[in-house]
């Protein structure tokens, strides 16, 4: 269960978004975020809502999963909303003057828009990246996007190799931690009671063998990689070459249209202007 980190929150599928080139996806996400922050009035926000519905349809991911993804943010969202409702000074008071505090219509609209923006931001980036891209594809995408930096001696290949190996070994190490903890529990160790210092102390006999074994694994792996003719990034080819397809072109146009739409609506559409 916990060792599912290899796929992260990836949802198996073969939708339009699943088939996009990870390099483009990274670019799309950044552009999308920029678009979201440009939105200034209610019409732009409507376009934003439309865009997230479209992304959801294109991804083929169940709504339940998306809503679950928002749950950890519930507190922050509620907190920001409340602050905005009570502190915002607008022009249309909603409560009688005799009350000791006041709420304005603009404050409520503002709060709703902030909530909407945060929700769209989180859901949109998760749909584009985490739910439809495996961490390994993401690593490949980042490596190839940053490849030009290798010319100015940025160790791009090395970082991506580290990332790959980390992804490969995290489940193994988690499994091993579980095993060692069980072994220590069987010897009477207690990880769940006592003061913080005491609990931290109980972890030492877990961490020491874990580190020792991690070093042994690293040494074994280095030998194995050497045996398989690994000599670093130079002269290396890849089996899975990333290909851009018509899908990426379509998505590029769509994202460009989205940003243009937001900007135009900001300028030309009348209506409530979002303040933040």
């Amino acid at each position: 269960m916990r060792s599912d980190i290899v796929f992260g929150q990836y949802c198996e599928g073969s939708s339009f978004l699943h088939k996009l080139d990870p390099r483009w996806k990274i670019i799309f996400v950044f552009s999308y975020i920029v678009g979201l922050f440009l939105a200034k009035n209610i019409f732009a926000f409507a376009l934003m809502t439309l865009s997230i519905i479209l992304l959801w349809v294109l991804s083929g991911i169940r709504a339940k999963i998306l809503i679950k993804g928002l749950r950890p943010l519930l507190f922050i969202i509620a907190f920001t909303a409340i602050i905005n409702i009570f502190w915002f000074k607008g022009e249309t008071p909603l409560l009688p003057d005799s009350w000791f505090f006041q709420i304005y219509l603009e404050g409520i609209i503002n709060a709703l828009l902030i909530v909407l923006r945060v929700a769209v931001l989180v859901t949109g980036t998760s749909i584009l990246l985490t739910y439809t891209t495996t961490p390994i594809a993401l690593t490949d995408g980042i490596e190839q996007l940053l490849a030009p930096l290798a010319k100015i001696k940025v160790p791009v290949h090395e970082f991506s190799m580290m990332m790959t190996i980390a992804l490969r070994f995290i489940p193994t190490l988690i499994e091993e931690t579980d095993k060692i903890m069980s072994a220590q529990k069987a010897r009477g160790s207690d990880f769940s009671q006592g003061s913080l210092a005491r609990r931290a102390k109980a972890l030492v006999p877990v961490l020491v063998p874990l580190f020792i074994s991690a070093f042994r694994r690293a040494e074994d792996l280095a030998t194995a990689m050497e045996c398989r003719c690994y000599t670093g990034g130079a002269g290396r080819t890849r089996m899975n070459v990333l290909h851009s397809t018509w899908r990426d072109a379509v998505m590029l146009v769509a994202i460009a249209a989205f940003i243009a739409g937001i900007v135009l609506l900001n300028i030309f559409a009348p209506g409530y202007v979002f303040a933040m």
């Binding site: 290899v6 961490p135 992804l167 074994d220 792996l221 990689m225 003719c229 080819t237 089996m239």
Partner: peptide, 24 residues
């Protein structure tokens, strides 16, 4: 556990060939 490099089976099998610089 200590000799597989990649997370996905086929990518691990490909690892050695990739190091040799064989075309995709």
């Amino acid at each position: 556990d200590n000799q597989l490099v990649a997370t996905i089976v086929e990518e691990d099998v490909a690892f050695g060939c990739e190091n040799l610089g064989i075309p995709s």
